[in-house]
Design a binder for these strands. Structure first.
Lengths: 212, 212
DNA sequence: CTGCCCCCTTGTCACTGTCAAATCCGTGGT
DNA sequence: ACCACGGATTTGACAGTGACAAGGGGGCAG
């Protein structure tokens, strides 16, 4: 049997994935503090030591979870970017796409606060495996490429280009963090379009573009 | 005896402070993950249950530690600000002072990475006590007041003012986080004055000031 | 000097992450 | 069809953790 999802075979077959799923659910429910390897195992319907075969450590599990988060973050950013591109139709609104990516970034953080916090230096802090670094890098590259398309910037090699990228990144990350921390009621309360306008404004300033 | 520091009286007398001291040392040594209430108690030279009398929870201890961190962060920002004011002597370089505060912010993060991370939503996540919120607010107000002095902005009431404040905050926080994560070798490797220039440039852009 | 109250200690509990050994069961060789 | 092989999973155990309940110790008021 190739098992249609919930087969209860002894050899689970997809335990790794199931564990990650359970882990994210636990993370959302109990928060980063209350998270426990044993209870995620229980939620996945296996014994407390089962995860050991798929993840060396608790840290390894969290790292995998974070990597997954980066994958999704990257996807969200790309999606928003693509949507923005469709909006503006013909015009090469490169800046608008960077803004869109930023919106996606912040939106992801708001939608997945616990995961977002885990991704950025939460628990499981030690030695991040290469896999995680690569996933994070992928998300970052969306931003780099976006900035590179704005006004013929060479975001990859020149120092000024890097500064622009970092500035945009810092703004996105800062807003995301603010939003999660509930520090921006004035922002969160706004309709989404207003939030978009605020962030767009800031990004444009950082890139020295005319406003509006 | 009013005990000159290390008195070994049964009634410690300053256990609360000693525990916070030990806790920070432990935090630095073992990182946020390896941190343990019991071992900080041991480091402070008391039994494992002693902290309970001064901090309801592990979370409470961490909150107090974070509050302390905010106090120091505020102090650093103010100090840098004051130094910048002295530099520019007569000129009312309000923007320069905001920049200085930002520098202080990033510098603090670099100098106290573990503490900084704890302060911003690390462990002990649940219900932040009022004390902590107040300490955080104090640091924030340094920034608010600084921005308010720039170009006659009304940072406290107008929405545009808030946007400016948030933009600067986001930039500072973003850079700080980048620096901690080691993501900005290109920045960290620079001499400090170059870092200052980069951040100054960004802050000025966020406040729509002429560059340079 | 004496009693009291607060600070701290000792002891214990449920729970955590990790390791070692036993157990299960699909797979491939015959 | 059989059967051993070997990886996946379980059971069991151990040191450490945070929280709680009692007990002991000492400084300070009377």
């Amino acid at each position: 049997m190739k098992d249609g999802a919930e087969s209860r075979r002894y050899h689970h077959g997809a335990l790794r994935e199931a564990l990650l799923e359970a882990a994210e659910a636990e993370l959302i429910e109990k928060g980063e503090d209350g998270f426990s390897l044993r209870s995620t195992a229980k939620r996945a319907g296996v014994s407390h030591a089962a995860p050991a075969h798929h993840f060396r450590d608790l840290a390894a599990l969290l790292h995998a979870l974070a990597a997954r988060g980066f994958d999704r973050l990257t996807a969200v950013m790309k999606a928003e970017q693509a949507a923005a591109g469709a909006d503006a139709a013909g015009t090469d609104d490169a800046a608008g796409q960077v803004v869109a990516a930023g919106i996606g970034y912040v939106r992801f953080a708001i939608d997945n606060p616990a995961l977002f916090q885990l991704m950025f230096g939460g628990r499981g802090g030690g030695d991040k495996p290469a896999e995680l670094a690569k996933a994070a890098e992928a998300g970052f590259s969306v931003l780099v490429n976006g900035v590179a398309r704005v006004g013929g910037r060479d975001a990859l090699t020149t120092e000024a280009g890097w500064r622009d990228v970092m500035a945009v990144w810092a703004i996105m990350h800062g807003y995301a963090h603010l939003a999660i921390g509930g520090k921006v009621a004035w922002l969160s309360d706004q309709p989404f379009e207003a939030q978009r306008a605020v962030i767009a404004d800031q990004v444009r300033r950082a890139l020295r573009l005319a406003e509006g």
